[in-house]
Structure formats: structure tokens, C-alpha cells
Design a binder for these strands. Structure first.
Lengths: 191, 191
DNA sequence: GTACGATGCGGACCGACGGTCCGCTTCAAT
DNA sequence: ATTGAAGCGGACCGTCGGTCCGCATCGTAC
């Protein structure tokens, strides 16, 4: 079909760009003052190649984010309990939320960069629908819990990147403390 | 002290600018494609006056938002139950959340514009701390509810403007339906 | 009504940024 | 070695938020 072997310098540049971008986002406090020109320069590559490789700013950040998120997604899709599909819903829901929270804690800058892209709300990202669908169906398998749809949205809202950043960054809440607060909250929602 | 009577044309322009801005934000689907020049032009005023009156884009949007939010804040601060301070906490919390949800429903564009200002997360807005403090102290007055702090954050996250926009705009959820879902969720959190 | 100083007006202007364009280089298939 | 295309890079463009400053307008004192 439309299969074309990519050129060697192209793949090398793509890798350099991803590495440079991650580095820069991790350093800078606010993601929006990492410019595309910065990324290209840090990777030792022209701006043209950057845009050719990723389309636009959103494409770059999405690629980075997806790469880092992939392990979590695999663990949820085919890993062992309590994250994997074999876990009973009442255990899986808190486990998934905790995993998501930990991911945001470990990759605050990326998650913030993704949400700060402007122009597309987090709810347009294809990831979001996956997480929401997963949580919804799990919640609906728990007896006595009506309204899995909105509950899933509300629970996901509790682990949004900017909230996490606010709690951990601006105020001094520690990682484990936040995890346990979220666990308490989730437990209360599950009844 | 440093009290200066403002000039009449200045107050007139300020009013025109606020009206024009509200109009434009209400019309446009995405707030970020209402430019400052657009606002100035629609108000029949120079860009210089716009920036002189509000400082910068964020200042304009904040002024608009604050003006529209003020009735809700007054109702909460000094109104009758269930919104006002005389209401018992277990009734006041859901009432406040419902009022906030209704506000976001009525002023989606403004709330979205405020959150989309980039550069400052919603958690830096001075409003947020007020709402959070109010909810927290109310929650802590309800016996058997530990952790009012995080709970308040999580509940507020459930009424964030972009989530509301996603539910009502992108998907077709109706106003009353959303209100009742939120009420259910809040009730479950309160136990 | 006139004169005058301060307040505010307005739009040309600026710097930065995301994104494009196109002549040139480099790759890899033959 | 040849060759055509895939990819490179950085000059360039349009737009936008924000500034600047000469000039008009307002309120006040007389």
C-alpha cells in the first residue's frame, strides 16, 4: 500500500527533536515559553524539519505525550490486576485513577503543555475518550452506582494536570499525600 | 488619598468596551479568535484606550467575568438559604455547586475565555481561592467528612468550564440533565 | 466664555511567535 | 556512478498582544 521507508536522517532528527522538546519542557516552568524555534535549535535542526516531522506544535506535544503514556495504557489494557482488565471494577477504578495521577505527577510539564496548547480543550484529545470510556464501563459494572458517565468525567476532572500542578507545585502537597487524598475521595464516590 | 475623578469619555469608553467584548465572545465559537483589535474596533475605540482601560487581555476578560459573577457572589455571601451563610453546610454545598454550574452554563463563553487566557491556570485566579475556601469550610462543618480541602478542589473540578462546554456543547446533554447529574454526584460525595 | 493643564485618545509601530516556502543537500534504489 | 525524490534549513510572512507619543478632549479656574 502506501508504505514508504523513511530516510535515516529523518528518523534521527525525529528522535533528536523529541528528546530536545522533552528536555526543554521539563526545564521551563511554563510550557508556553518553550518556542518551536527553541526546540529546533536545541535539537540542532532547522525549523522546517520540525514542522515537517510533527505538523504543528500540538502534533509535537501529542507525540511526546503519547510516547510517555504508552506504558500506562498497555498496563491498563493488558496488564495484571488491579490495573488490567481482570480486576474487579471496584478495585480497578481507583487503581486506574491512581495510575493516572502518578503519570501526571511524573510528567507534569508534558501534561500541562498538552492542556495549554489552547485551541483544543483536553476533551478533544483522543486519549480522553479512551479513559472516560474505560472508567464509565467499569463504573457501570459496580452495582448501585447510577450515572457512570458523569461520574467518570468528574473523577477524571479530579486528576487534571493543572489541578495536580497547583496542589503539588504552588501549594506544597506531597506526592503520597495527594495519592491518599485521591484514594479517599474515590472510595467515597464509589460508596 | 490617590482618588481621582475619572473623565466622562473614559467611563463611556470602558462601558462600550465591556459591551463589545461580551458581544464578540458570545458570538465566536472559540474565544481565542476574538482579538483585542476586534474588541476595540467593535467598541469604536482605539486599541490604546482598550489597553489603557484594562491593562491587558486577561484584565479585560477578568473585568467582564467579575461583573457577571458578582450577583452570584453576593447571593452566596449575604443571601438567604440555601445559598447564603445561614444554610446548613450539607445543603449549602450542593446549592453553591449548582449555582456555579448554572453560571457556567449561562456564561460559557466568558468562563472559557478566562480559562483559555493561557499563561495563568484557573487556580491562580483570585476567585478560585474564594470558592475553594468557602466550600472547604462548609465541608469541614459536616460531621464524618474528612479532607475538606481536596474534596473542595475535586468538586470544583467537576464544574470547570471546559468540561461543561464539552458535555453541553460537543455532546448534547441538556441543562437540567447536567444539573441533576451533578446533584447526584455531590450527594454521593457528601455520603 | 476663555484659557490652560491634565487626562485620555488612537492608530502607527514593535517584537515575538507559529507556520510556510523553496533552492539546495543528501539519501538510497538502480 | 547516476538520478530522482525525500528531506533539510533558515529566510520569510501574517498575525497578534502590547507600547508609544503627538494630539484632541475634558474639567476647572477665572
Amino acid at each position: 500500500m502506501t508504505e514508504r521507508k523513511p530516510r535515516s536522517d529523518a528518523v534521527r532528527n525525529r528522535a533528536s527533536l523529541l528528546a530536545a522538546a522533552e528536555e526543554l519542557f521539563a526545564r521551563s516552568a511554563r510550557p508556553e515559553d518553550v518556542t518551536m524555534a527553541d526546540v529546533a535549535a536545541a535539537a540542532g535542526v532547522g525549523k522546517g524539519s520540525l514542522f515537517r516531522a510533527f505538523g504543528d506544535r500540538t502534533g509535537l506535544i501529542r507525540a511526546l505525550y503519547a510516547a510517555r503514556l504508552e506504558p500506562v495504557e498497555r498496563a491498563v489494557a493488558e496488564g495484571p490486576a488491579p490495573l488490567g482488565p481482570s480486576a474487579p471494577p471496584a478495585e480497578r477504578v481507583p487503581a486506574v485513577l491512581d495510575a493516572l495521577l502518578c503519570f501526571k505527577l511524573d510528567h507534569r510539564h508534558l501534561a500541562l503543555a498538552l492542556e495549554a496548547t489552547g485551541s483544543d480543550s483536553p476533551y478533544r484529545a483522543e486519549h480522553y475518550d479512551r479513559w472516560h470510556g474505560l472508567l464509565r464501563s467499569a463504573l457501570e459494572r459496580i452495582p448501585g452506582l447510577p450515572d457512570g458517565d458523569f461520574t467518570a468525567h468528574a473523577l477524571l476532572a479530579a486528576v487534571r494536570a493543572d489541578l495536580v500542578e497547583h496542589l503539588v507545585g504552588t501549594r506544597g502537597m506531597g506526592r503520597e499525600e495527594l495519592r491518599s487524598r485521591l484514594a479517599d475521595f474515590t472510595a467515597r464516590v464509589l460508596g
